Computed example of a mutant assay.
Amino acid sequence: MRTNYVLIDYENVQPSALSVLEKEHFKVIVFVGSNQAKITFDVAAQLQRLGSSASYIKISGNGPNALDFHIAYYIGHLAATDPDAYFHIISKDTGFDPLIAHLKAKKILACRSQDITDMPIVKAANSRIPSEKIAVVVANLKQRGASKPRTVKTLSSTISSLFQKALVEEELAALLKLMEKQGLVIINDTKVTYSLPG
């Protein structure tokens, strides 16, 4: 399973629910501003439970976007050593969005979420009923812009990966049928076109 790096902008977000990252495919890096003297006990305790899968980086220097540049550097470094990884930036700072778009153009998997519970992989893992699963799939497809899957086989594979290959074939087929019934996808033989909500 691919490694999911979770890079937390601690100046911007003090995350909750770190316990959902207690799986072997997550690596958590908390970026702490140079003027931040401490982190909360809850965050420290939860990160400690993650053991070697969690680390801190206290940035050096001040200035606008200093922490953001550190996150960008580490994504570049990690992407060079682990090109199949997925990078999750946890921040409310929309300034990361052009970086995310550039990474995607370079075929590097990345997204920004405002909180750990908003991460697509976490939402997918927590979705139980078909409507929740479809919401996760639609959000993922909308993020892809023009690079949506164009065949039923590729779309099925994309959905399967999104749910960490935990869906059985019948469940996957039922989701596709439901998406077609709701008018979200149009399937013509093996080809797929989309009609996603705005």
Rank of each mutant, 00 (worst) to 15 (best):
I8F: 10
A166I: 07
Q36E: 13
T193K: 14
H70G: 00
A124F: 14
F26I: 03
A66V: 15
V20C: 02
Y73N: 02
K23R: 11
A124T: 14
K38W: 05
L103N: 00
V30L: 07
S160Q: 15
L184K: 08
L167E: 08
A85V: 14
K92H: 12
I71T: 07
A135H: 09
L67V: 11
G76H: 02
R2H: 02
F41N: 08
K191H: 14
Q14N: 15
S127L: 07
L109K: 15
S156C: 05
G63V: 05
H25T: 01
K27A: 05
G63C: 09
P98R: 01
V122K: 13
S156R: 10
C111L: 12
I29G: 03
P15E: 08
L78Y: 13
L21T: 06
K58D: 01
S16W: 07
Q114W: 05
F87K: 07
F26A: 03
H25C: 00
S195H: 11
F41A: 07
P15C: 05
I39R: 10
Q36I: 14
V138H: 11
E170F: 04
G95H: 04
G61E: 13
S60H: 07
T193Y: 05
H102I: 01
K38R: 14
Q48D: 02
T158P: 01
F26M: 01
E171Y: 09
R128P: 01
D189F: 09
G63W: 05
T158G: 02
K58L: 06
L109N: 10
R128F: 07
D115C: 11
I71M: 10
I29C: 09
I71G: 03
D93V: 06
Y194P: 09
S131F: 13
N126A: 15
I159C: 03
S34H: 11
R150N: 03
K104C: 00
A37Y: 06
L18S: 03
H77V: 10
D93A: 06
A124D: 13
C111E: 14
A135Q: 13
N35L: 13
D9N: 08
S157T: 10
S19Q: 12
A79Q: 04
F41M: 10
H77N: 07
T151I: 01
H77Y: 06
V28K: 04
E171P: 10
Y5F: 13
P83V: 10
